Structures are given as structure tokens and as C-alpha cells.
Simulated scan of single mutants.
Amino acid sequence: MSYTIPNLFLDAFGLKVNQVYRPELSTGNPDKPKGLFSGMEIAENINESFDTSSRGTAILFPIDFSEGNYKKYNDKGELINVNMGDFRLPIASVVSFRRDKIMSQTKINGGRGSVKEVYGFDDWQVTINGFLIPDNSQKQGFTTPLKQEKELVKWDNLASSIEVFGELFTLRRITNLAIKGITFEPMRGKPNIRTFTINALSDESIELNIKSGI
């Protein structure tokens, strides 16, 4: 059974994902791709490749859930601590971001438009779409789709926000995610591939200073 990652994204999510050609390791500079490499985006600097797959292809924007002590509910409904190890999300993952402003709009009598008062920014709405595929380069040993799905379910079961690392998240100053929901779906004609979608919100610590009159 053969497939390409761009075709999988197009079939499953309607997303067009361009392929990337990785520069030569010896020089750090890209060759001029021809033939099978035509139409690919060229990474001008090998340092742009933060990670590589088992086939040596570049993973430009990997997403990692960071190890740490988190909260979850046990079978008795009690909140307990649980230690989680690092988890690099499946390499065939793409992330989208959306954020609204918190504003008040006042209509103008006899005029056009409105008066807008901006009070702040809402949370980032984060959607991660991807595939669970065999991956021998998975750092934590989750090399099969089943192992990856089980690990994602463990993270979804947490009752606390998750520390996340990735350049696209750092760019938006997102350090933690609160998972709202996760979906797993099979792909027709591809029994060893499953799609997943994570819907999450950005989360950040809020410090409250309480002044005591005592």
C-alpha cells in the first residue's frame, strides 16, 4: 500500500500541504531539485530542520507535549497526580490558530459603523490535524498507530493544561494547552492509518495578589 502525506491531508481534511526538500547534510545548502523534487519548497538552511523522520526527511515544525507532573481523575473521581513523559506528536501533523479580540461595539445613531472598545484578547483556539502512521523515528518509542493513539488518549485524560513546545507556539507565546476534545477516525482503504483532530485552547497562569487588611 502506497500513499503520500500531502495526499492524505487532502483526502482527510481538505488541506493542501506542500512537500519540502531537505538540503544536503555535507554543505548545509540546498541542491537544485529537479524531476521528482519539482514543485517542492526548499529549506535554504539545514538548521531550519529541527528534526528528521526515519527516512531523513525534514520535520520543520514538530510539536511536543512536555514531561511533568499533571492532574487527572482516578476511577473514584478523585484528583490525583500523574507523571507524564515527553511525547512528540505524530510527524504528519499540522496546526492552525485562531484568536478573537474581546471588544464592545456601540452603534452610532444616524451614522455609519460603530464605536469599538477593545478590552483584551481571547484565548487562542488551536486545532491540530494529523495522522497516526508507522513511524520508526518516534523518539519515545510510540512507533505504531495504536501506541500513538493510546498515548494521545492518556494526554486527553488529564485534568490540567499541558505544557507544549514548538516554534509555531513560541511565536504566539503559547506555553500551555487545555484540550477541549479529540477525535479519531479511520481512513477508507487504509487500515493501518487513522486520522486525529485535537481541539484546544491556549492556557496561561494568572497571578492574583490579595491585599489583606489585617
Rank of each mutant, 00 (worst) to 15 (best):
F13S: 01
M40Q: 07
K139A: 15
R188I: 15
L152V: 10
G56V: 06
G77H: 03
E44S: 08
I179K: 07
Y21W: 01
F196W: 06
N109C: 05
D75I: 07
R194E: 10
F121P: 00
F9R: 08
I63T: 08
I108T: 04
N157L: 14
K72L: 14
L201F: 08
G68N: 06
N192I: 09
V82L: 05
F9Y: 04
G141V: 13
R112N: 14
S93P: 03
R173S: 13
F65C: 04
D135L: 03
F97V: 00
N199A: 11
N109Y: 09
P33C: 10
E41I: 13
Q148Y: 06
P191V: 05
E41P: 00
M103E: 15
L171I: 03
V95P: 00
P145G: 03
I182Q: 09
E48V: 01
G130T: 11
Q140P: 02
V17R: 10
P6D: 07
N47L: 13
L208F: 09
L132A: 06
P145E: 01
Y73Q: 12
F196R: 08
G39Q: 07
T183F: 10
T143K: 12
L171G: 00
G39T: 12
N47P: 00
S2A: 08
N29R: 12
G77Y: 05
G181W: 05
I108Y: 05
K101G: 09
G85N: 15
F9M: 06
A178N: 06
F97D: 00
F13T: 10
T143L: 01
F165K: 15
A92T: 07
I91P: 00
K101F: 11
F13Y: 14
G213Q: 06
E78S: 09
K76T: 10
G213C: 00
I198F: 07
P90Q: 04
E149T: 00
R173F: 02
S212T: 09
E24R: 11
G213S: 09
S137D: 08
F13K: 06
V20S: 02
K72C: 10
G85Q: 15
G181S: 15
G39V: 09
R172M: 03
N81W: 12
F121L: 11
